[in-house]
Simulated scan of single mutants.
Amino acid sequence: MTAWSTDDELFTLAERELFTCVVGDIMDKLCLFHQFLPPQIRPILNEAIVIGRAMPVLGGNVFEESSPGSANRLMEKPFGLMLEAVDDLQKGEVYICTGSAPRNATWGEMMATRATKLGARGAVLDGYYRDTKGLIRMNFPTFGYGSYGQDSAPRYKVHDFRVPIEIGAVRIHPGDIIFGDIDGVCIVPKEAEREVFSKALEKARGEKLVKKSLEAGLSAVAAYSEHGIM
């Protein structure tokens, strides 16, 4: 039996007791070796934590805000489906996007305001965010390459959302769990989430005992021999 019965309970447990290192360690043991997003995806503030269900968004480069007469009617629409994607966020979800060259911001304060109203839990970007002071004031968990004010309107459109995406070596499906902190962002496949988080909680609690043993003077070799954790 797991220590949680709802997503809210799991997310609260993870925020209180877990960190990405221990979750990643457990996934390694389960042969899920490629679950961390690239290390340049960093929190807007060191203390920021994001955890929630993935709502993947796929975008791409464009070179003008609107292209009338294109074979693709989406090219006539500023931002493509970006605003529709934000409006489709559900309670407990995290907006996660990729697909374009990192030459503009793909998230900002107005999007975060709408996402907060819908109960979303954060944004993870394979690129930049902007309106950084506003995002910090809102305390909205945002992860990306950093802040960059250049607008997306003539440079970027969302093509689709709620579809599988890939960032680095990681494939992200709708409903996977995103967990991020100062050490990075990892993706927990939904089919493995109960085993991963149950074992991660067990390991995190065990590490506290190991730390006490080390503080008391036990050697690293002896502590590992006794607890099987390091």
Rank of each mutant, 00 (worst) to 15 (best):
I41A: 06
E193H: 10
C21M: 11
A105N: 04
V221H: 11
L74R: 08
G80E: 00
S152I: 03
A222D: 15
L89W: 06
P154H: 01
R114Q: 11
L214W: 07
L118D: 09
A223I: 05
L135P: 07
C186W: 03
M230F: 08
T142K: 09
L83I: 12
I167S: 05
V221Q: 15
P164N: 03
G146F: 04
P141F: 05
E109T: 05
V210D: 14
C21W: 06
E65G: 11
L209T: 02
R53T: 12
L135T: 01
E195N: 05
L32M: 10
E166F: 00
L58G: 00
Y128P: 01
K157A: 11
Y128Q: 03
R137A: 14
F19D: 15
G119R: 06
E15H: 12
F63W: 15
F197H: 01
A192C: 03
V170W: 09
V50L: 05
T20H: 06
A153C: 05
K29D: 14
K211N: 10
V86A: 05
S213P: 01
S5F: 00
F179V: 10
L118V: 09
I229E: 14
K29Y: 10
A120P: 04
L37I: 02
L89M: 10
D8E: 15
L118P: 11
A71M: 12
G122R: 04
P78R: 06
A112W: 00
E202A: 09
A204P: 02
F33V: 06
A200M: 01
Y224S: 13
C186M: 06
G134R: 00
V86M: 05
L125D: 04
A71F: 09
I136M: 14
K91M: 09
K211R: 14
P68C: 11
G108W: 09
I172V: 13
K91R: 12
P141E: 13
D183N: 12
E109Q: 13
E47A: 11
V86F: 00
I136F: 06
A112I: 01
A153M: 10
F36K: 13
E215S: 02
I229R: 15
P164C: 06
I49S: 07
G206Y: 03
T132K: 15
D160N: 15
R205W: 05
Y145C: 10
P174N: 06
Q40V: 12
V196S: 09
A223R: 07
A101R: 12
M1D: 11
L83M: 08
G122N: 07
Q40C: 07
V94L: 11
T6M: 09
V210K: 04
M82S: 07
G99H: 02
Y156M: 10
R130P: 00
S100R: 12
K77G: 00
T116I: 13
Y95C: 08
K91F: 08
N72R: 07
I187W: 03
G69D: 12
F179Q: 10
C186I: 08
G217R: 01
A85Y: 04
P39N: 10
K211Q: 13
D88H: 10
G149H: 07
T113V: 12
E207D: 11
Y95R: 05
G146V: 02
Q90V: 03
Y224E: 15
D176Y: 01
L74V: 03
G69H: 12
